[in-house]
Design a protein around this nucleic acid. Structure first.
Length: 199
DNA sequence: CGGCTGATGATCT
DNA sequence: GATCATCAGCCGG
């Protein structure tokens, strides 16, 4: 396995849509006492400034504060009472925006992921945002964590393999502002949730 | 396979 | 009290 290098904040595109595409093929890493878990990012969604579908739409609140800082911070929240979702904050300080990480291709710590998820099936370990958080053991305690501080347990890594052709679609499971094609995925990847063909 | 639906809690109105 | 960027299990074809 190729060595993964921590991404610096300056490498992340400021623009939310560009960040969502940039993150495809990159790595999400969580260093835990029992070992490293990592996965290759294969599916993302952009939640833009002024976007009705974004939790940041109504301005900063205690929950959404992490979307309003600099880019490269974790915004973690709980959905439907059970599933935690992991986002990367985007844009400049004061602007609320982020990129939802929707699916990973598991790389390291697969046995721990299987244990955490209660399934052996590789393609199901991190296919979907709730499964991703559970497999990576990312919870609400990591909301606001700096993914680019160079020392944190949760961080973004360089690509192991270049990303393949990228497809796009409408975002999944939202009701407001459903039109724009702000979901991005690696075409054909078995680890993608939902449609995985070209846009 | 695909469609339906209940579970469950933080957040905001 | 309503909303929700979901998932797993169950059912039918």
């Amino acid at each position: 396995m190729r060595q993964v290098r921590r991404l610096r904040r300056s490498e992340l595109p400021v623009d939310t849509t560009r960040l969502a595409e940039f993150l495809l093929g990159k790595t999400l890493v969580h260093d835990l006492p029992d070992g490293r878990r990592s996965g290759r990012i294969v599916e993302t969604e952009a939640y833009l400034p002024g976007d009705e579908a974004s939790h940041a739409f109504r301005g900063p609140t205690p929950r959404t504060m992490s979307m309003f800082g600099a880019r490269g911070y974790a915004y973690v929240y709980r959905s439907y009472g059970l599933h935690d979702m992991v986002n990367v904050s985007a844009e400049r300080p004061g602007t609320g925006a982020g990129v939802l990480l929707r699916a990973l291709e598991p790389l390291e710590g697969i046995d721990r992921m299987q244990q955490a998820r209660g399934t052996m099936r590789l393609t199901d370990l991190a296919r979907g945002p709730g499964r991703l958080a559970m497999a990576m053991q990312v919870g609400l305690d990591l909301d606001g964590a700096d993914l680019c501080d160079g020392t944190g347990a949760l961080w973004l890594g360089s690509a192991t393999l270049p990303v393949g052709p990228v497809g796009s679609s409408a975002r999944i499971g939202i009701t407001k502002n459903p039109k724009p094609l702000l979901r991005f995925f690696e075409q054909g990847s078995r680890f993608v949730s939902g449609p995985r063909g070209p846009a």
